[in-house]
Amino acid sequence: MIQNRMDFKLGIGLAVFCIFLLVYLIPKHVGPLNEADALMPTLVTGFVLLLSLLLAVQAIRRPGDKQHGAESHSGTKGSRWYTIALVVVIMSAYAWLLDITGFVLTSLGAMVALFLVFGVKRWLPILAISLGTLGGLYLCFDIMLGAPLPVGTLVETFLE
């Protein structure tokens, strides 16, 4: 049987990714191998491919270090995977909405959402910390440094 499942999966996954790079992405998005541009990406990808296959082979024979695996913690006190996914979703929304709804609204929304995800339920600290952070940043960037944070296209339309 495979001794270290995580490393085996990682090795195979990386190898598949490298092959995808070699046969599709590099020819399509860099150029043919005979050109200097493609040399470095191809060489490095080849190197990763080699190493990841090595990792997969090693994983078959050598057991992983059980004590340090991240799994040992999960399920006990740590957050479940969907909470982490939720944070990632909030952060992505934050990044994508920043342009539209601007720094103040987006940050406030995102921070409140994050506080709730992290289990802070009392509104006073939530608002105090969020508004304090945002106020400090606004003061720093917009007023002291004259480097404005994004206003947001939607907000801009309203302000006009």
Partner: peptide, 18 residues
């Protein structure tokens, strides 16, 4: 950390933008 992390995440966004 429940109080600290939302602030750090917001700072990450502003730091990356700034």
């Amino acid at each position: 950390r429940a109080y600290l992390f939302p602030v750090i995440l917001a700072l990450c966004v502003i730091g990356a933008f700034g």
